[in-house]
């Protein structure tokens, strides 16, 4: 998964990047399933690997992007970027190593428990009912916004 994520960043052609992103999302869904989060894994495949990536590929087709021409890199800026990323990764490894509970294996799950769709659905519709409705309104607003944005002439 990390390999295909690196390929997303390094490949020059946006179509290849998008394909590697699909691979990365599918592998991430596999990781969710190893964490016993079956519902989230399926949603990941449906929403990310399905809808979002179709949108990305559609836009790449619409814009008719060619492989990026080899421009002169701003060397100082690239070095700074790599330094920031390396520092972040090092710091992260330090923090995770110093976390006492990070080395413990996961607690066992109840094998007779109802499927996690039941659990997520119950939590969603009982404790998080208002946020769910706000999310619905957000989706409506973003749909309207996209329609307004993609009109031929913006006023």
């Amino acid at each position: 998964m990390l390999g295909s994520a690196v390929a997303v960043v390094l490949l020059r052609n946006p179509v290849n990047s998008a394909m590697c992103l699909v691979l990365s999302f599918l592998a991430l869904a596999g990781l969710y399933i190893t964490l016993d989060a079956f519902f989230i894994g399926i949603i990941q495949v449906l929403v990310y690997a399905g809808a979002v990536m179709v949108l990305f590929l559609f836009i790449i087709m619409l814009l008719d992007l060619k492989a990026e021409a080899r421009r002169r890199l701003n060397l100082a800026a690239s070095a700074g970027g790599i330094a920031v990323i390396g520092g972040f990764a090092l710091l992260l490894v330090q923090v995770v190593k110093s976390l006492p509970s990070a080395a413990h294996p996961f607690p066992a799950l109840n094998p007779d428990a109802p499927s996690d769709v039941v659990g997520v659905g119950t939590t969603l519709f009982s404790h998080f009912n208002l946020p769910l409705q706000i999310i619905g309104v957000l989706l409506l607003v973003s749909t309207v916004g996209v329609v307004v944005l993609s009109r031929r002439t913006l006023r």
Binding site: L35, D36, A37, F39, I40, I43, Q44, V47, Y48, A51, V52, L55, F56, P107, A108, L109, N110, P111, A113, D116, G119, V120, T122, T123, L124, H127, F128, P131, I135, L138, L139, S142
Partner: peptide
């Protein structure tokens, strides 16, 4: 022996917002 479903609901919300953002 149940996972913490609050976090999974938060992930669900994040995925929804990410889709709208995309």
């Amino acid at each position: 022996g149940l996972p913490d479903y609050n976090a999974q609901v938060l992930v669900f919300f994040i995925i929804t917002v990410a889709a709208a953002e995309v």
